[in-house]
């Protein structure tokens, strides 16, 4: 289960996931809270490419479809960029 899928399954507004989790649309861009960034892992190569195109890139930017949820991430806090509000 990815963070994107968890959000879209629960109709969280602002996470669209247009490409269905193929790391190909950047509509599930999130900012991972500093306390969680290590546990959330590092960007994949294709994720880096896609994040290059977003208007509001930050150091803690991730694509939610590339963040796999497990017990370690229980309680993780992420924020949405303004463009996805």
């Amino acid at each position: 289960m990815t963070l994107m899928r968890a959000a879209t399954d629960n109709r969280v507004p602002g996470i669209d996931g247009d490409c269905g989790g193929n790391c190909a649309c950047a509509t599930c861009h999130v900012y991972v809270d500093a306390a969680w960034s290590d546990r959330a892992g590092v960007r994949t190569a294709s994720e880096r490419e896609m994040l290059n195109m977003v208007p509001e890139l930050k150091d803690n930017s991730r694509l939610a479809c590339q963040v796999t949820l497990d017990d370690n991430l229980n309680g993780m806090v992420v924020a949405l960029p303004e463009s996805q509000h």
Partner: peptide, 18 residues
């Protein structure tokens, strides 16, 4: 409804889709 190909996918995806 958003899962369509019209904007393309990947790095060339439409800049102006929104």
């Amino acid at each position: 409804p958003r899962q369509h190909l019209s904007f393309g996918f990947g790095i060339h995806r439409c800049v102006g889709n929104r």
